[in-house]
Amino acid sequence: MSVPVPLDPPRRLVELEVDGRPVRVPEGSTILEACRSEGIETPTLCFLDTLTPVNVCRVCVVEVEGSRVLAPACSRRVEPGMKVRTDSDRVRTSRRMVLELLASSVDLSLASPDVGRWMRDYGAEPERYGPPAPAAEAGERDARRAGHHEEPVDGLAATVAQPVKVDNELYVRDYSRCILCYKCVEACGVEAQNTFAIAVAGRGFDARISTEFAVPLTESACVYCGNCIGVCPTGALMFKSEHDLRRQGNWDESRQRVVETICPYCGVGCHVELHVQDDEIVKVTSPLDHDITSGHLCIKGRFGYQFTQRRAPVGASPDPGGPPEHAG
């Protein structure tokens, strides 16, 4: 007794040229999608399939014939007859420079391994901007005034380095790693959670992700859904569990397996991925490509698993204040 379900109306195909090759993709596709359909790798940082492109990192730029400037592949829609070049000198220079400028100002050491590979492929040399300036004091970057900055001194290169923010038991925020891709703001905001605990504040190089008046998360609107962490590409936002394991030197992805199951709480039925290391859940994510969650969870789904490993042995009362009990 299945019934017809409205499907997306069929889309027309658009023909364009990418690096001299003819490509046909559905109308409304982006250049990035066209490149992917041809197997052309395009570096991306601020792009994520589940979020509306904000096209701010500019590492995906391509050359579109007839266009004065380069175009972001992630958000520019294809047009019939468009001629796109993804590997011209102009494109390579811009991509190299974007990677170089970022790497000279942000700690990219926990970004995906792709980033390191792109840096090598494009020949990025972040060192040539000079030695990095000392890290800012805690809170100093949060207080910078729009439109005013200190003059550069001693040939040092400004960076966003600053102390890690740890103000609760579930998240840490290490903005020395923040490339301002806006993904966390989007995920906290209109694209998923709609809590708006964080936004971009300040401007220019002093722009930063912030709560209102830079209050700690515990005084903000944050509901600890962890969706910002789920989308962060550089490890600037991290579960405290992972942060602590990393600090102890015990984080080891090669020893981890991922099991997909269903969240045990409310009746929505969110798909969760349990990351298990040494028979312990160390992180919970959700698949981006499942339409119930699109990668997003709530606080219970994200952190509520801890009962499985803090469960007291049967026969004793549960003791929430005591040390974690491990299985086995």
Partner: peptide
Amino acid sequence: QTELYASPL
């Protein structure tokens, strides 16, 4: 179950 994680809320 839920009292066993450190919810800041």
